[in-house]
């Protein structure tokens, strides 16, 4: 990928190279774009670890990754892995394609992540009937390997 001199480079997936996940979205979906601030999040995702950034001083969590803590302005941080459980905070069901060969409609949702210090993230709901989606629905994480080096977190109705 371009921009190696700025520290952005492709990453190695831990254990799953040969064992790719189920696919929900086509290859032509817009690719993630990263800079050096957000890159570690994508590297963790490639290893199927869903993380939030955590301030090393006040422990406030944040996402997307950013240079300083918006609560105490500390630049020190670490990464906290979350379980992947959560609930639907809000959603939209989209009837227009973003990429070629995309199944329609598809669900974009804001997911409130469990044990994350109150973090929400934008993602998709998969393995769900559109008319069953509702605010508050319990969901769980499912990784979609878009390629050997790119994995995206999606969510499905909680099964356990």
């Amino acid at each position: 990928m371009p921009g190696d001199e700025r520290g952005v480079r492709s990453v190695e997936r831990g254990s799953i190279g040969e064992d790719m996940s189920e696919r929900y979205f086509p290859d032509g979906m817009p690719p993630p774009l990263a800079d050096t601030t957000t890159l570690p999040w994508w590297q963790a995702a490639a290893e199927h670890r869903l993380v939030v950034q955590r301030c090393a001083d006040c422990q406030a969590t944040r996402l997307p990754p950013s240079p300083v803590c918006a609560e105490c302005r500390s630049p020190e941080f670490d990464w906290k892995e979350v379980s992947g459980g959560g609930s639907v905070y809000t959603f939209t069901i989209v009837h227009r394609p973003i990429a070629a060969d995309q199944a329609l409609p598809f669900v974009i949702a804001v997911i409130a992540l469990d044990d994350s210090g109150g973090i929400r993230m934008i993602s998709n709901l998969v393995e769900v009937e559109c008319d069953e989606v509702e605010v508050g629905m319990a969901v769980e994480l499912v990784w979609e390997d878009m390629s050997e080096e790119l994995a995206l977190p999606r969510f499905r109705p909680r099964q356990s």
């Binding site: 492709s10 774009l33 800079d35 790119l150």
Partner: peptide, 10 residues
């Protein structure tokens, strides 16, 4: 087509 990959945000 190329395999989906992370791209540089400019």
């Amino acid at each position: 087509p190329a395999p989906p990959s992370l791209q540089q945000a400019n």
